[in-house]
Simulated scan of single mutants.
Amino acid sequence: MKKLILEEWLSLDGYAEDKNGKLDFFPETKANRYSDLDQLNFLESIDTILLGRKTYELFVDFWPTATNDVEIIADRLNSIPKIVFSNTLKKAPWGKWPDAQVLSGDAMEEVKKLKEKDGKDMVLWGSISLAQSLMQANLIDEYHIQICPVAAGGGKALFPGADHYKNLKLVDVRQYDTGVVFLHYKV
């Protein structure tokens, strides 16, 4: 059975987006080489990338044309099959790479089916609304949280008003030269 890993970049005060819906608090990738190497190793354990529509639209503007000389994870990220959850998109092209598959309807049921398949694990990047729905349905197995050294002062929180405790087990902590701290939790 596959695990679903949620990977989110958050401000120090817990926001996945700032008040304006922006992600400007992410560190520059040029200064982020150590975490990029860790991300490249992580991608070897993944055979499916899940995205919501908004995150797909952000990613598709950059990643399909990115090259390994600028982003060392580019070829690996681009070659992994992707699924976009959307009730509005019909197609999800990915540049010269194979198109992402578009799934509409009940994302929770689709994710349950995907988790039952054999293979490597899956990662959900960003896609905060989808992530929150999957968290509510207890479909997230692990959390990779990248804490950026910025307080956003408001925005969209990863864990908004949970009605019960979510107990997590810390598995790994890493600190990068950008000031980003990586936290790996299992449910």
Rank of each mutant, 00 (worst) to 15 (best):
K3V: 01
W9F: 09
S11K: 04
G14H: 02
Y15T: 01
K19I: 13
P27F: 10
P27G: 12
P27N: 13
E28W: 08
E28C: 10
Y34E: 13
S35Y: 11
G52Q: 11
R53A: 13
Y56P: 03
E57R: 08
L58H: 12
V60H: 09
V60A: 12
W63T: 05
A66H: 12
V70L: 11
E71N: 15
E71R: 11
E71V: 14
I73M: 03
I73L: 03
R76F: 04
L77V: 13
L77D: 00
S79K: 10
I80S: 07
P81I: 10
I83T: 13
F85D: 01
F85Y: 06
K91D: 15
G95P: 14
G95F: 06
P98K: 08
P98V: 01
P98Y: 00
D99M: 11
A100Q: 02
Q101G: 09
S104Y: 09
A107F: 02
M108L: 14
E109G: 06
K115C: 10
E116C: 01
V123P: 05
V123H: 04
L124G: 05
W125P: 00
I128Y: 08
L130R: 00
A131V: 00
L134G: 01
Q136G: 13
Q136M: 12
Q136W: 09
N138R: 13
L139R: 02
Y143M: 04
Y143V: 03
V150N: 06
V150K: 06
V150C: 09
A151R: 07
A152R: 05
G153N: 04
G154K: 05
G155K: 03
P160K: 10
G161K: 12
H164S: 15
H164L: 10
N167H: 14
K169T: 13
V173N: 08
G179Y: 07
G179C: 11
V181S: 05
Y185S: 07
